[in-house]
Design a protein around this nucleic acid. Structure first.
Lengths: 216, 216
DNA sequence: CAGATCTTATTGACACTGTCAATATATCTC
DNA sequence: GAGATATATTGACAGTGTCAATAAGATCTG
């Protein structure tokens, strides 16, 4: 049974302390394919070819495993959003009000949610996650701060609280994604603009922030 | 052991076919107190003082029980919303654009969500509910249709799709509630108007629908 | 190199869940 | 009352998270 050769036999578990990332990878696959319910400790262990209690050495409990996964996913989302912002034009320094960057922000958020339903859902499953987790909390806060930063860079008209505007944009996107993922709205196009409904929705919202609406 | 008296002994289960409503009532209590996770078939049975398999005669499975409960809750919500609309002023027939009724709609929705976290959450837990259920589906559709009806009664400016406006308002409220219930936003007041943030948010959104914004 | 220590994995158990099958007990109808 | 129907009980099974005891490997120490 014992292999005297010192070279690692090419088994499934890659020798070193590689079980933890393997568990997270398996969890991610399971999540995408069958949803958060299917991400059980035992199923993840099975997928990695280890015993049902092996994960306990890396994650105290199921909540801890899912929280670590969610932290990864949130980092992915944050990166996606950052890329979207990087690709958006800078605000015109003097020309006043540009909503291109906020549009990019909202569109990227909705796109991610619709593209990765189970991942997006998990991010907000507070019953499954440890809300106190520093990594998770930190990434979320940073993303929100990023939005607030973009909004504060704009010359909002008097009477508009930038924080209310930020909460509004986020709520709008989050609500739309949630409803769509729950099968409640249908992917349609705006009857007037012909754009996807969520795009028109975001555009309408952002136009309202501008000092003066410019009607067609 | 056998009681020859024909009068019903005053035990917990009220004699007749009263187990079904009793189960639903117990489920509601459990939901409010400990969340949807705690609403298990066995826990509900325990609360009613019956055996763990008794509920099977009234609900095929857990999903069926939760769906029936959610249908009740949705009906409650619909009634609350209807009352809110009934209390709102009629639209001025000639004076053009009145957002009072839409405001009432949004405010009532948010108020319900914040007041009954677990109930509101359950309504959208598609993983726990039977989305095909006619009663559930019907109540939801009617509520959305009601919103659309209110919106269609308004003279939206050219270039605004009423359905996009409806989806937007609903998304805004739903997203805000969801975030709040997940502990992500904090109850604050709008820095400018001094109103609760969600009120300012809704007001801003609705003002944007009007043909012409009237700055202060 | 040998021994001790720390990390990691395994096995087995417990309580809890949903769900099914077989059984018993009401209640209603004729 | 007798049969039929609706409802409740008991017991079992597989699945889950989690804990304790054990075993094996790696790593550090001398």
């Amino acid at each position: 049974m014992k292999n005297p050769a010192p070279s690692p036999p090419p088994e499934k578990p890659a020798r070193k302390g590689a079980l933890r990332p393997a568990l997270l990878a398996a969890a991610r696959t399971l999540l995408d394919r069958e949803g958060a319910d299917a991400v059980t400790i035992r199923a993840v262990a099975r997928a990695c070819g280890v015993s049902h209690a092996a994960p306990a050495n890396h994650f105290a409990d199921r909540r801890s495993l899912l929280t670590a996964l969610a932290a990864e996913l949130f980092a992915d989302l944050a990166e996606t959003m950052e890329n979207a912002l990087a690709g958006a034009p800078q605000n015109p320094a003097n020309k006043g009000f540009g909503t291109a960057r906020l549009t990019a922000f909202g569109e990227a958020l909705v796109a991610y949610g619709l593209a990765h339903p189970e991942r997006y859902r998990l991010l907000w499953r507070r019953d499954l996650l440890d809300g106190e987790d520093a990594a998770l909390q930190g990434t979320m806060d940073r993303l929100y701060a990023r939005l607030l930063e973009e909004l504060s860079a704009l010359p909002l008209p008097a009477g508009k609280d930038p924080e209310t505007a930020a909460v509004g944009l986020w709520s709008l996107c989050h609500g739309y994604i949630s409803m769509r993922l729950d099968g409640n709205f249908i992917a349609r196009r705006d009857k007037e603009s012909g754009a996807p409904r969520h795009s028109a929705m975001i555009a309408n919202y952002l136009a309202a922030l501008a000092p003066q609406a410019h009607p067609a």
